[in-house]
Simulated scan of single mutants.
Amino acid sequence: MVTEVKIGDVAFGDQHPFVLVSGPCVLEDLDMTLHIAESLKKLTDQLGIDFVFKASYDKANRTSVSSFRGPGIDAGLEMLAKVKSEFNVPVVSDVHDATQVAAASQVLDIIQIPAFLCRQTDLLVAAGNSGRVVNVKKGQFQAPWDMKHVVGKVASTGNEQILLTERGASFGYNNLVVDMRSLLIMRELGKPVIFDATHAVQLPGGADGASAGQREYVAALSRAAVAIGIDGLFWEVHPDPECARCDGPNSLYLKDLQPILESLLAVDAVVKNR
């Protein structure tokens, strides 16, 4: 059994269908952000899927110094607040150091710790102290059983509202693989687990100054993860991934989501005996 994590009407845990955590990799502009959020909200409402909107206000770990990072924390939080109020959905974004947590927690429903920072004690404790739900992405270098120490750092604040996300492990240069055992191992820590299917097919730094990706494998990996019994699915999406300013090669086309989600709901219902 895992601890149920609730944000309003959105619930992660054993008794619930998977939650879709989705949006663009990075906030590009307000019109694009609202278009993606509206499309995802309509689709998830139609399919009966709980939905959390995600987008980064700053991509602090881009491959190149010239890569687009986003609008920054102030403008980015304003955009996310607009999404939250206009579509009545929870929102999540990354924080990169402890000084960002206070401002971010005024808007975000979920404070997300990036994979590269999953061992940063001060950041984890600050996120826990925010009182918000904390989603920690397992580092590409981190064993799933070692996430118990990550959970312990957040929980040391008294905050047990913790989510864990699998996004693949480094496998040689410019490549990631997913050990599906890690989804089960992390769930044994008693926390809901999310599978980040679009980052799992990323090829970090594989495009000479940017990351490449293999979106053609997202649907299959998502089915495998849902068949294991995960609590949430993380997808980066874009109306035109080829023109996305970050992570386009591993992002899904917004127009292609419905049939994939319908098939995943069928698998989820069987696995969870619903």
Rank of each mutant, 00 (worst) to 15 (best):
C246F: 08
G13N: 13
I36P: 02
F116D: 12
G131W: 12
P192N: 09
P204K: 10
D268E: 12
F18N: 10
L20P: 00
V177W: 03
M180Y: 15
V91G: 11
R245Y: 03
I111A: 07
Q140D: 09
V101H: 06
E242H: 11
L117F: 13
W235T: 01
G248W: 02
N135L: 08
A103Y: 06
T198I: 01
V133D: 09
L77D: 00
D122W: 10
E86L: 12
R181M: 12
D208Y: 09
M147Y: 04
E236M: 09
E236A: 10
K138V: 00
N135R: 09
I230C: 07
E188L: 11
F53C: 01
L254H: 03
L108N: 08
D109Q: 07
D256A: 15
S66L: 12
S170G: 07
H96L: 12
V21M: 15
V271H: 06
Q120K: 12
N175F: 09
H96P: 09
A219N: 11
E236T: 06
G131L: 09
P241D: 05
Q258C: 05
D208T: 11
D45V: 00
L77C: 02
G76V: 00
I230Y: 12
V270T: 13
P144S: 15
V19S: 09
V178S: 10
E188Y: 07
D94R: 09
V89S: 04
L264H: 02
H149E: 14
K137T: 06
R223M: 08
T198H: 10
D256V: 00
A127H: 05
V177S: 13
S67K: 04
K54A: 06
I111V: 15
V134W: 10
Q106I: 01
A225T: 03
D74G: 07
V101P: 01
A244E: 04
A244S: 12
P114N: 12
L189A: 08
Q100D: 14
T63P: 06
K137C: 08
V270W: 12
A37R: 01
E166G: 05
L123E: 05
F53Y: 15
S56E: 02
A115C: 11
A155Y: 07
D9V: 00
G48Q: 06
D97Y: 08
L124S: 05
W145N: 03
K255L: 06
L47G: 02
V218F: 02
R132D: 01
G172R: 13
I7K: 08
N273D: 15
V52L: 14
F87I: 00
S182C: 09
D208A: 15
D45S: 04
E38D: 15
L43E: 01
K59N: 04
H199V: 10
D208I: 10
L252V: 05
V271A: 13
R223F: 02
H238N: 04
S251A: 14
E28P: 01
L163W: 04
L163N: 04
G8D: 06
D196Q: 11
V19Q: 11
E38A: 15
M1V: 11
A81Y: 09
G172M: 11
L261M: 05
A224W: 10
K82D: 14
